[in-house]
Amino acid sequence: MSHSTHPAKEPKGHEAGPIASSTLPIHLRAATLDDVPALVPLVLRLKSLNEEFDPLLKVRKDAEKMAAEVLTRDIKDPEAIVLATEGVGADKDRIVGVVRARIRERPFYAPEREGVILDIYLLPLYRRHGVGEYLLEEVTKAVKAKGAGVLTAEFPIQNHIAASFYNKRGFRPTMGLYSRPL
């Protein structure tokens, strides 16, 4: 994955926030091991949100350590992708977004290889500027390069904003994950 800069969509007038001056020259790159400490809080924010949807998504006490472990593993793993988004202005050297995806084999279905988005998170001030869409485009390219013929996304079923994000971009629900505590 090469470095790239994306002139994200011009924000709408009524949504103009503190950083919405013109376009967002967002810088997206493959994460390195040095990025892990900065990525962990973003992943934890996402997991804390998920916790609100269902008691079975309660965040573990050691989640911070686990996030670091998982990110470290996936940054090294050729069957995974971790992209980091750098901010603009005062946030220039700060990581403000992350997307993590893994390649899964599909033994019974074609296409055989699936890219699955496991974490995608952007700090609030960077939303509504088309940055999420850019993250999705880049992760799509990356999993395709690894031979994936289908892209999926996992998120809590009650997260209607996520559902709407993917619905608008050509995704449809295909599999369900039903849970009960034991």
């Binding site: 924010r45 804390s48 949100l49 700090l123 609030p124």
Partner: peptide, 8 residues
């Protein structure tokens, strides 16, 4: 913007 409950 980055308060813990903003995503919620």
């Amino acid at each position: 913007a980055e308060r813990d409950d903003v995503d919620s």
